[in-house]
Each structure stands twice: as C-alpha cells, then as structure tokens.
Amino acid sequence: MRPHIPGQSILYLPIARSLTASSETHGTLREGPGGDKPRQWKQLFAECGKDSQSPINIVTSKVKMDWNLKPFTFEGYEKQTAKWVLENDGHSVTLQESAKITDGSLNSKYKATQFHFHWGSHGNWGSSPGSEHSIDGERYAMELHIVHRREDLSSDAEAVKHKDGLAVLGFFIKVRNRSSLLVFLGKKVQMEPLALKSLIPHEKNLTRYYRYAGSLTTPGCNEAVVWTVFEEPIELGQHTNLSLPMMDNFRPIQPLGNRTVYKSSAGAILPPAKALLVITIAYLMVTLFQ
C-alpha cells in the first residue's frame, strides 16, 4: 500500500522507469518471490525494519474475536464527479472528492484519497499470485487497497506521523482463469470517474473482516495504518482477459511479532462477491491508452 507522500518517492514497480531523482538513485525494486531489494529497505528507511510492518500472513486459528468490530458506513461511495488521476506508477488512482468511511470500530472518520492494485506476473495467476496479505499461507491473484486518511489531518505526510493516521481497506481478488498481462511504462492521465462502490462487494458482503495495526507496504514503511482485510474475495469469472500494467508489485510477508489480529463478529456466511470489478479494471486500462 503506497499513498503518495510529498518528498518521499521510490520506484516500486519492477519494470517501470521512474521520473524522480530519488527513484533513479535507489534503482529498480523487484517485488515478490526471488526479489531481494525489499530486504534492503530497512537500510535506507529505518521504519522498514520495525516490528509492526505490513503485509502479514493471517493465521485464522490465532485471530481474536472482537465483538466491537461492526460493519462500516460508506459515505459518498455511490457517486464520483471529479476526474480520477491515474498516477505514473501505473497502478494508483488519486481521488479528488470526499468519499468517507466511519464505524467499523474506527475512532475517527476517514476520507478516501486513492486506491490501487497489487498483482503477480506473466498472467499465470496460480504460480505467481500477487496479493500482499495472505490467509493461512494462501495468497490470491490480486489485492485492492482503498486508502483513507483521518479526516482531521491535512495531508498524507501528516497522517504517517500518527499510529491511526491512515485506514486502508484491503480486498482479495480471485481470478479463475489465466490472463495475459500487457506491460507498459506508466504515465499520469485524468479519467472519467466511476462510483467507488463499483470497486467493492455489496455492503452485505463486508461484515466479515480482519483488523490489525500495521504499516505502509512501500518505503518509508510508516507504521501509521489501521488495516482492514476483508475475508471474502472478489471473484472474477472465467474467460476474463485483463490487460494489467507492470508485474509483481507486492511486498513479501512481514513477521506478525507481538501483534494481535482481530476478527469481526458477523456470523453469516456470505457468497463471494462477483464480477463488477472486472469492468472497472478494464475501464482503467482502456482509459490509459486513449
């Protein structure tokens, strides 16, 4: 998860060329299996070596039920009118309006600032899954993060100074078939917005989730994130052909340490959310090539 923080820029995608001096200095970072660059982050950014880092593997037999973890309230997710800005990293969309989340045992109201995806490589979703978090060691093809900043804070740079400065909603994405990837050099463009609710499952599917205290998953790895990882994956149907930028843009699993992962108390078993997300992904990719 990587909100844009002024003055803090590092190349995160393995085959893109950054336009910033700091990214040129640090070079290409390969994420995922076999990548060694993330192991060097703590030498450059002190917080990357701390004890509350993300992502993590969630071991379901060790999570603790928290009866206070109630459903979220989503404000402004139904309609967006301001243009979205697709950043030049090729996978982040900046949000211009004030969609917000409350409840969900959050102590404040949080404003949505951006969303992005993480995925694996070569279109082989089975052998190179790309989600950052995992459940009992299982990783999914992709993971969607919607980043929110505490409403009383004026910037992400200010938010990372607080343990609860950012609240991120994480959604696993399950892809049934093998899809080809189209690799390209990212660029910054504006695009027509969609409703944020088209990115995520129906609210009735969002009552079962995990909660823990963690960090950004890119340098500077600031431990300022209240993480919510939803249990049910979004499932893309068969014969879905996705053209996605870049490859392997995920950080390896980090130790849980002394932290506790909590689980919401919703009792209903709900079916996986389906297919609307594929429309949004296709829309993002087509817009980029206009």
Rank of each mutant, 00 (worst) to 15 (best):
L166N: 11
L166P: 15
A167G: 02
V168R: 00
F171N: 02
V175Q: 12
R176D: 12
L185S: 14
G186D: 01
G186A: 08
V189E: 08
M191A: 12
P193T: 09
S198M: 10
P201V: 04
P201N: 13
E203W: 00
E203P: 07
L206C: 13
L206T: 07
L206S: 05
T207Y: 03
T207P: 00
R208P: 02
R208L: 00
Y210F: 15
R211P: 00
Y212H: 11
A213W: 06
S215R: 09
L216N: 00
C221W: 04
C221G: 12
N222I: 03
V229D: 03
E231I: 04
E231Y: 08
E231F: 11
I234W: 02
N241Y: 06
L242P: 01
S243Y: 03
M247W: 01
N249Q: 10
F250D: 01
R251D: 11
L256G: 03
L256W: 07
Y262N: 10
K263Y: 00
K263P: 05
K263A: 09
S265Q: 13
A268S: 10
I269A: 13
L270M: 09
L270I: 05
P272M: 05
P272E: 06
A273L: 08
A275F: 05
A275T: 09
L276R: 08
L277G: 04
